Simulated scan of single mutants.
Amino acid sequence: MGISSDGILVYGIPCEEDAIPEFLEEFEGDFDAYLESISGLPQWGGPGHDFAAQRAFRDACPVDLVAHCSYDYPMHIIAVRGTEYRNSRGSVTEPTSFDVPLEKLAAFTNWCTERGITGKPRWCLVSMYG
């Protein structure tokens, strides 16, 4: 029995090697904790917390943070939500489209600009060793 790598194809902006995006530093790279903090909704464990509302806020975000490289030493790509294709060893994943809808790209670009994230998004083929 061995360890394998998953293949990941995603459209986004790679972060610098071994760097946590600056806007996530106070959250130690936890993208979900960051989104929870800006949602304006009651926090996890607090009175009135609504998991479904928190999930809806997260799903409406035009950005995903995709980890790659290895679970012990992750690297990150700030990605357009919905563009990630992932494949485990021994299976086949067939991308359905390489077109990124203009409205998704515009929302992604605006979100990144608001946080000072620069770079040109592109298709990135990476792996996750686990």
Rank of each mutant, 00 (worst) to 15 (best):
M1S: 13
M1N: 08
G2R: 12
S4Q: 13
S4H: 14
S4F: 15
S5D: 13
D6P: 00
D6W: 10
D6G: 11
G7H: 12
I8K: 09
L9H: 08
L9S: 11
L9I: 13
L9T: 13
V10Q: 07
V10D: 08
Y11K: 04
Y11A: 06
Y11L: 04
G12S: 04
I13A: 02
I13Y: 00
I13F: 01
E16I: 09
E17H: 11
D18L: 12
I20V: 15
I20G: 10
E22D: 15
E26H: 13
F27W: 09
E28H: 15
D30G: 03
F31T: 00
F31H: 03
D32K: 06
D32N: 10
D32Y: 04
A33M: 09
Y34D: 03
L35P: 01
E36Q: 10
S37C: 06
I38Q: 09
I38K: 10
I38L: 05
S39K: 03
G40V: 08
W44P: 00
G45H: 04
G46F: 00
P47K: 13
P47H: 08
H49I: 00
D50K: 03
A52R: 06
A53D: 06
A53E: 09
R55P: 00
A56D: 12
F57D: 02
F57W: 05
F57A: 04
F57N: 03
R58A: 09
D59Y: 02
C61V: 03
C61G: 01
V63T: 04
V66Q: 05
A67M: 06
A67S: 14
C69K: 12
M75W: 14
M75I: 01
H76Y: 15
I78Y: 01
A79V: 05
A79I: 04
A79K: 02
R81K: 13
R81H: 06
T83N: 08
T83Y: 07
E84C: 14
Y85K: 10
N87K: 15
G90D: 14
G90K: 14
S91Y: 14
V92T: 15
T93R: 15
E94V: 15
T96L: 09
T96Q: 12
T96P: 00
S97R: 09
S97A: 11
F98M: 15
F98Y: 15
D99E: 14
L102D: 14
L105T: 05
L105A: 04
A106R: 10
A107F: 03
F108G: 02
N110L: 04
C112R: 00
E114I: 04
R115P: 01
G116S: 12
G116R: 13
I117P: 00
I117G: 01
I117M: 05
I117A: 04
R122K: 12
W123N: 09
C124A: 07
C124D: 10
S127Y: 11
G130L: 07
